[in-house]
Every structure is written in C-alpha cells, then in structure tokens.
C-alpha cells in the first residue's frame, strides 16, 4: 500500500464485514516519540482463537472467492519492516482490536496519505455504523464522532454526497489545525 490511510481503510473494511455497529479509528503521529500509531477497534463478530492464530498468515482467509487474505499480514509486515509493533486481540461475540505502530522516521514508512478520504469512504460504505475517528499529533487532537453528525442531520443520511463533501472539508480543516496527516 502506498499510504497508511489505505491500510486503515482495508482493515476497517474487515470490521464492517464483521457486522460491527461501532468502529473506533485512531491515528497518532508523534515526532517527539518518533512513532505513527494506528488503532482500529470494532464491536463486530470477533474471531475464534483458531482464526486469530492464523489471521497474520498471508495464506489464510475465510472468504471463498480468493484463497489468500492480504490485509492484516500486509500491515503486520509493514510494522516489522519499520521497527514498529503489531498487536491484535479478538473475542468471539465481542469484537476485535488491532494496534499497529511504525517508526516515524523509518525510510520504509509510507506517508499517512489521504486519511480524510479513508474516513469518508468508510462512512459511505456503511453509513449506519457509528465511526469515532480520532487524530492526535504533538500539537493537539481532533475527534469526529458520526453520531454527532447524525444528530445534526436528523433524517438525512450521512452518506449523501453533499454531506460527504462537507465532511471532507471539515476533517481537512481540523487536521490542518493540529498539523495532522502531513507526514
């Protein structure tokens, strides 16, 4: 993947598929600590211990159209390549939580990229899900909770193109104010 935000999109799609109704995504970039951390947490169906054990194996997938899973092994490999860390925990019936950290200054670390697009793509994929997206930098933090957005919108769907375009500007402005998403 060319951007970390694409890995995030890919992993969060698993949470959508797992039937979650809440997905928390947080990105923290810290020049001070020399880290870029990503956390994706869902309350979907979770995985059995057996599935969890095999999930970081690139030749494992539960889908039938293609014989290999890619998303999780790809991200895990990236954390290994960039002197970071990778953790995944999951409980059947409760959900899954994944944390990936890369060393910020590592030459092989991809840029965060267009994280705003990742968030709007996810909202558009499954507008009924509550997404809580937090972005933290050395100079501040920003949170978007789609429940707050839905409250303002009443019956209008968050996936209406006009709303998505507005959210794009809103998120970009807030990222700008904390100097986020530029590395």
């Amino acid at each position: 993947m060319k951007e970390l935000s694409l890995n995030i999109l890919d992993i969060a799609q698993n949470s959508v598929k797992a039937g979650a109704d809440r997905i928390d995504i947080s990105v923290s970039e810290s020049v001070k600590n020399d880290t870029v951390g990503i956390t994706i947490k869902d309350n979907g169906c979770g995985m059995s211990q057996k599935t969890l054990d095999s999930v970081t194996d690139p030749f494992f997938t539960t889908r039938t159209t293609r014989k290999v899973g890619l998303g999780i092994p790809l991200l895990r490999q990236l954390t290994l390549d960039t002197e970071g860390s990778f953790d995944i925990s999951s409980k059947e019936g409760e959900g899954t939580s994944l944390r990936a950290v890369c060393r910020l200054s590592h030459l092989d670390r991809p840029p965060i990229g267009d994280i705003t697009s990742t968030v709007t793509s996810l909202i558009s994929a499954a507008p009924e899900i509550r997404y809580v997206y937090t972005h933290e930098t050395d100079s501040g933090a920003f949170t978007l909770d789609t429940d707050d957005v839905k409250e303002m919108l009443g019956g209008v769907s968050v996936s209406e193109p006009e709303v998505l375009m507005w959210l794009t500007e809103y998120i970009n402005e807030n990222l700008e104010s904390i100097d986020g998403g530029k590395i």
Binding site: L6, D10, R66, S117, L164
Partner: peptide, 23 residues
Amino acid sequence: GMATCGIAAGARPVLNKFIEEVQ
C-alpha cells in the same frame, strides 16, 4: 470493488471521484 487488492490498485480515489461527480 474495495477488497485489499482493489484498494491497493487505487479504488479509493475512484470511489471518491464518483461521489464528487454525483454531487
């Protein structure tokens, strides 16, 4: 199509361009 390989090949900007054009 937004599976891993679609995303890696550039599906996200394709999706967003559709949304933008429709709007």
